[in-house]
Write a protein that binds this DNA or RNA. Structure first.
Lengths: 343, 343
DNA sequence: TTGTACGCGTTATCAG
DNA sequence: CTGATAACGCGTACAA
């Protein structure tokens, strides 16, 4: 290895011209045998296909794209693959698209989506024909850009009525209201929320707002704790300790991720805080482990896989059948388990 | 929307020709301003770059690839993104590559890697310049194919000395031996292993073999339980029940995934089996949650992120500097916690 | 049903 | 340092 190992060169060493010569037909007939089979006499086509296979012919996708202006590539921009909640969606998205020969470019951007212009253009310049984005598009320039070039773009994990782009997601604001209402109905008068990084993160912002609005409307004590660094179990544990020290009257904690809730349960155990007797804990995402925690975690189920599949279908329908992209408001569901109970 | 919304057409509406005209230079100079800046007089270059930016010029990647025979795309084939252990690696891999303007195609193949020829050719035909694959390449035809076309291919998550392809991974066989030896040294005489799907999965096969060989050499009782369906917590729980019923003398269980081990702990709790007093449990992967389980899980740490980063570096070095791909045998480490102890 | 010839937008070559 | 032009491999009018 080392010298002259160019993949394209090797892979595309035999072209339509070679096949045409070998089959004693024109290049047009070869091309048509692959792309418009019904236009070629069956015997001729079969012969060409066979010869092409024997010669190891592979269409050059760059040339194909250049000519046809289609790449069969979809771009996806997500915060990170390191959270199963995004990985699950992308997994479903990718699987569905690959059934139709589409391939997915994946780019991670961290939780701050306010600065993803570069990532978007990178994918677009590389030929992405449509985009999947997590959350709302916050950068006005990006919004203009996508609109100007009519890039088919789907936003997920959120739902905003005022958006210029279709959303296939769920209502973060309403979902959190469901959670807080439930906790309030249980009699909790002072509740804390542990949220993820807020900057450029419309999901977290909506949840915090919903929480604050509800609690304020009831004139109930409340506090918000931002998990700024690592979004993991250790953080949840740490933040619990801070909460306990500075707000000892908190009787329930809303975690905006099951991972954080996991940490809170772990921290509570260490501190000797009984759950749910002394403290109620509620998660978000309904990850697989939630029901196996001690105690089983009350949490909010979100339609991760469904978002991926529906988004893929929408993209396919748009690209293949010119169907306009529609929004879907998907349902979430509060799964009550044993980490919450009446005060 | 609906008609004539071709992304490429819109995005590449202004070409080098337009920029050249506007800047009053030749197209060659425009091209060079972007790709070989040192060959263009600074003032001229700056002017061209500015004009190009104002006109919204974007190079057509298909044309670029067609001419240069480079795509700056890397393909990755992994079992699933739905397991954080793979997602973590891919996340690191992708992040590193994107620093150099590379983009990653991700395709999932399930756990059976014996039939991925189609996936490989799909990625290659789409222009992937190099490949990242999880596990050993089992299909002889695929092996021949990759060798014939000299596709830069890195295999991960395993390490085989007899492989025709470089491995950036760890030794599954030896790692399991470490685990079994440790358990045996603790005095366990009958051990069970819960493994993942075996078909087309060299990692699981190596671990099972290692386990059987060691136990046989000690003439110790042992059994292997294949987790055929879902590779999740519920399965671990279920299989534990089967083990307890049919092999009541088992005093230790090796789980080939922390997720399975999680299920075993959950099942044990339900059955009233005390861990580690009545049963030792050991995991694999050292996922984040392992140390927070009850009891904290003894497990094997694997270098997921490191594999991703090193693989990315190797690919970059191969593509940019013609450096041959080298193998790296990375270390694993047994993390002893409280789910194991002397008999 | 098939063949000819052109153009897609870029980079590489070669001459200046 | 710059310009003119060929070539990359394919799809598709248009002609036959």
């Amino acid at each position: 290895m080392g010298q002259n190992n160019n993949v394209m060169e090797k892979l595309n060493s035999v072209s339509v011209i070679d096949v045409a010569k070998a089959a004693n037909v024109s290049i047009a007939t070869v091309s048509r045998s692959f792309n418009k089979p019904e236009m070629v006499k069956p015997e001729v086509r079969e012969k060409i296909l066979e010869i092409a296979a024997n010669m190891g012919y592979t269409a050059n996708s760059a040339a194909k794209s250049l000519r046809s202006k289609k790449t069969k590539v979809i771009g996806a921009i997500i915060p990170t693959l390191d959270h199963s909640i995004y990985a699950t969606m992308i997994n479903a998205f990718q699987k569905k698209l690959s059934e139709q020969g589409y391939v997915v470019y994946i780019l991670t951007c961290g939780f701050d989506a306010s600065d993803i212009f570069d990532k978007v253009t990178l994918l677009l310049e590389r030929g992405a024909e449509a985009l999947l984005i997590v959350g709302k598009i916050l950068d006005k320039n990006l919004e203009k850009y996508l609109l100007k070039f009519k890039i088919p773009t789907i936003c997920t994990y959120s739902y905003h009525h005022d958006s210029k782009f279709p959303f296939i997601g769920f209502d973060n604001y309403a979902s959190t209201t469901t959670i807080v209402e439930y906790l309030y109905s249980l009699g909790h008068k002072e509740i804390a929320m542990i949220c993820g990084p807020l900057k450029g993160n419309d999901r977290q912002i909506a949840r915090v707002e919903s929480f604050k609005n509800f609690m304020t409307s009831k004139q109930a004590e409340h506090s918000v704790w931002e998990c700024k660094n690592q979004y993991n179990i250790a953080s949840g544990k740490e933040i619990l300790k801070e909460i306990v020290i500075s707000n000892p009257n908190v009787s329930a904690i809303i975690c905006n991720s099951d991972v954080i809730a996991f940490g809170v349960l772990a921290g509570a155990k260490e501190l000797g805080i009984k759950i749910p007797e002394q403290l109620n804990v509620i998660g978000y995402d309904n990850l697989e482990f939630a029901e196996y925690l001690t105690p089983p975690l009350t949490t909010l189920n979100i339609p991760a896989e469904e978002m991926g599949i529906l988004s893929a279908k929408a993209v396919l329908d748009n690209l293949n059948n010119q169907q306009p992209l529609k929004s879907y408001l998907l349902k979430t569901e509060l799964i009550v388990r044993e980490s919450t109970n009446p005060d």
